[in-house]
Amino acid sequence: MKPDKEKIDNGRRSFIGAAAGVSAAVVAPGVVLHTVDATAAPRTEPVTDLHRWGMLIDTSKCADGCSACVSACDRENGLNLQSKPLGDDPLKWDNQRAVWIRKVKLQDNTTGRITNLPLMCQHCENPPCVDVCPTGASFKRADGLVLVDRHTCIGCRYCMMACPYKARSFIHEKVDQKLTRAPRGKGCVESCTLCVHRLDEGDISTACADACNAEGHQAIVFGDLNDPDGPLRQALRQVPSRQIRQDLGLNTGVRYSGI
């Protein structure tokens, strides 16, 4: 039962007032910082589907023993800053650290022919990881990039179960060092972004393709699948190519020749 008249508790009022003031003082700098961030961003237009970014990987040019693309990706996205947590088993850690791109070496069972290729997120048109994500953190951008929103990823790892390419990594450890262009944090899933930070600044390139070119192999052609006269479409016209697990009908953005 409520008493008829409650006495006004002035102490309580002043406490609430003070608490509100302190909260505002704490929150305000954050708000200001966010505003500065927003204005500093170069892109003001939303991404459109005029472009669809993709790649052609010519496995005949991919050199055995070369891992320039892998190291370049690690440097570009700060994955080289990862370190084994103290006390973890080294073999287990090799399988726990984040890998966005990996070198795969195959041998044909009948002919014995050896094939080398880099494997990363295939940026599917119909990505299974996006279908299964409960919160929509795993999403496909209008320009075909399949990305993870690190603010809504709850770390359920269902996308990793669904990905047919083993392209995704879960961040198993505390992240001490990271790059501003590729923020990462414990407990979320991540994968190749096709160097989205470059694309958003108008730089049409990826670290892996640049590194491959610098080595003189030119096995990776990056470009716009929607541009009929662009370098990617020209390259795709010249050599026969296919998708890994083409049977799944995912229409990948990354295509391979010679497999």
Partner: peptide, 29 residues
């Protein structure tokens, strides 16, 4: 079912799947 490797390249044997130590082509421990 997860320990069993994903079969991405039918008719081919995976000799290496990233380095170091990644087990993509083999049964995962």
């Amino acid at each position: 079912s997860q320990a069993y490797p994903l079969e991405m390249f039918p008719g081919k044997t995976v000799l290496e799947f990233g380095a170091p130590g990644d087990v993509g082509g083999a049964v995962a421990p």
